[in-house]
Design a protein around this nucleic acid. Structure first.
Length: 561
RNA sequence: UAACCUGUAGUGUAGUGGUUAGCAUUCAAGACUUUGAAUCUUGGGGCAUAGGUUCAAAUCCUAUCAGGUUAUCCA
């Protein structure tokens, strides 16, 4: 019940203004209109959160409309993936609709356009038409077919529809203004011949409407009040309005407004480039955990809540942006910190022997599942004489800043005992094979003894060798080493691919409880980061993906020297 | 170089004539800590530039500069 008013973004301000001017709140209606020709990415997620967020805020319906006017590129597979992603993000659409649902209506309206002398059939080649289009600085010239009689246009359009013409031979154009400074107003194409089977309408149609003719009209049919799209459609607005003018017949008149697309640092966002990464094998598919796709983020271990939070804090505006991926990473860490169970896993194991711990003995120690969540409870983890700890957690000699295990120094084993480094055993190369230490039997965690309350500077995670489960851990890092890989005019974005974006570790050990972990489960490997169980994981072969590492202050201290 | 759009800490944003220009993240320092995590405290860092209008300008006007978008029978 806080009094502070949340500031409105510019789109909400537009809506508030409309409401203040008498627009009925119950007429508010939004839509998310993907073309089913690829997978959704984090940029789409922002748009989804924006549109569905407005729906929630104003209690207005939000339609999911597939903009499927180009059968050459669209497939059912994408429709399914898109629906799945939106649901996963936690949103519900009011209606599942398709531009293709309106093909007949669009066609009827096109006839109307022709009859009112606002559209004509052009049978020139695309090259000729392009030539007549002019350039942004020079006006275009009229097509010789511009004044074709209405009857003839009607006849030709009918033939286009019936399949009498080949692809590329005839188009229907709106008759607007070949001299307009806005290139889109220079008699834009609204129908083309396409003899392709459509994923929904099959071979019913030989002609398909262009985006501009389908989008605004679909908005109108659905009663969309605010049609929100990205900035590159700004020049289309004039055409959107013009086309609507021709057929408007009362009711809610949709308005298009534009916002800046969300870009993320250290990645690329264009469908074309993402497709290239997939096709050329730089990643393992659209859902590779390094991809900025929703499916990739999901597989990486991101939560819907984290992505929604990111969209919220990143906000929405009209200026070009490259949002720091660190903000996205903060959002997952923030969410996972509250929700992910803590477990122990050793990624780079070295053997630790507790010389004064009885051989053959084991005990099951109490371990808190999540200190941030009092309802998370606790579990038992097995402890024994021989453990694995991280190789980086031991040094024979170290300065005072090193809080971890060294010879003759004490550290605590998390949830267990305080130990003291005694000696090391090395192999023939001089590498450490085993670390021997002693433990203080009275220092058991939570036992309440004086010894257990002793303060030691460092705490290490560990797993009991005899109980540990071997696992594969995939360490993911940024796909690109450059902040804006596609922002260099003279260089291809692929030159910046990070060769170490995936490091596979097949020799990690995790505590035995994780044997039962299922794909999608998320954990915090204490002191290391957040990890999730990969789709390919099985009971016999556990695979974890690193979602994001924990902040590592020690790495910074060490770097400074 | 035409039309249109956009310039507020490193990044993302709020600010709508009167604010010590706010928030988040990042960065730095410290406290706390059985995660060198989290948490807490503190700090650094910004209105593209130049002129106007006004008692008062990030906000209004003008110019300049910078960046972006637009010429697919794509969306």
């Amino acid at each position: 019940m806080s009094e502070e008013k949340k500031s409105l973004n510019f789109l909400e301000q537009i809506i508030e203004e409309d409401l203040a001017n008498g627009f009925d709140k119950s007429d508010l209606r939004f839509r998310f209109p993907p073309e089913p020709n690829g997978y959704l990415h984090i940029g789409h997620a922002s748009s989804i959160c924006l549109n569905f967020g407005l729906g929630l805020k104003y209690n207005a319906p939000v339609n999911l409309r597939f903009d499927d006017t180009n059968p050459a590129k669209e497939e059912q597979e994408y429709v399914d993936a898109i629906k799945n992603d939106i649901k996963w993000l936690g949103f519900e659409w009011a209606n599942e609709l398709y531009s293709s649902d309106y093909f007949q209506q669009l066609y009827d309206w096109a006839i109307l356009l022709i009859k009112s002398g606002k559209a004509y059939v052009d049978d020139q080649s695309s090259e000729e038409i392009a030539k007549q289009k002019g350039t942004p600085t020079e006006p275009g010239t009229n097509s010789p077919n511009r004044d074709r009689p209405i009857e003839e246009n009607l006849e030709l359009f009918e033939k286009m529809k019936n399949g009498a013409f080949e692809e590329g031979s005839h188009i229907l154009r709106a008759k607007i203004d070949m001299a307009s400074p806005n290139m889109l107003m220079r008699d834009p194409i609204i129908y083309r011949v396409l003899k392709k089977a459509h994923h929904r309408t099959g071979t019913d149609w030989n002609i398909y409407p262009m985006y501009d003719w389908a989008h605004g009209e679909s908005d109108y049919i659905e009663g969309i009040s605010h049609s929100l799209c990205t900035l590159e459609f700004k020049p289309h607005r004039k055409l959107y309005d013009w086309l609507l003018d021709q057929i408007y017949d009362g009711g809610i008149r949709p308005k298009q407004r534009e916002f800046a697309r969300r870009n993320l640092s250290y990645t690329v966002m264009s469908k074309r480039k993402l497709l290239q990464l997939v096709e050329e094998g730089h990643v393992n598919g659209w859902d590779d955990p390094r991809m900025p796709t929703i499916s990739g983020l999901r597989r990486r271990g991101y939560t819907p809540a984290a992505i929604r939070k990111f969209s919220e804090v990143a906000g929405i505006a009209k200026r070009d942006n490259v949002t720091d991926v660190a903000l996205l990473e903060f959002c997952v860490k923030d969410d996972l910190n509250k929700t992910a169970p803590r477990v122990m896993a050793v990624l780079n194991p070295v053997k630790l022997v507790i010389t004064n711990y009885p051989e053959g003995e084991e005990e099951w120690l109490e371990a808190e599942n999540n200190p941030e969540d009092e309802h998370a409870g606790s579990r038992k983890v097995p402890f024994s004489r021989e453990l694995y700890i991280e190789r980086e957690d031991f040094r024979e000699e170290a300065n005072k800043k090193f809080f971890r295990l060294t010879l003759n120094k004490e550290v605590r084993l998390k949830n267990a005992y305080i130990i003291k480094g005694e000696s090391v055993i090395k192999d023939e190369h001089g590498d450490i094979k085993e670390i021997h230490c002693s433990y203080d039997p009275k220092s058991k965690s939570g036992s309440g003894t004086e010894e257990s309350k002793r303060k030691v500077k460092g705490t290490l995670h560990w797993v009991s060798i005899q109980h540990a489960v071997k696992a594969e851990v995939r360490m993911y890092d940024r796909l690109f080493s450059d902040e804006a890989p596609d922002g260099h005019k003279d260089k291809d974005f692929k030159e910046f691919i990070n060769p170490n974006s995936l490091v596979v570790n097949k020799n990690a050990f995790v505590e035995p409880g994780l044997q039962e972990a299922k794909p999608g489960d998320r954990f915090q490997f204490q002191r290391l980061g957040y990890f999730c169980v990969d789709l390919d994981s099985s009971h016999e072969h556990l695979i974890f993906n690193r979602t994001v590492p924990l902040r590592d202050s020690w790495a910074k201290i060490e770097k400074k020297g």
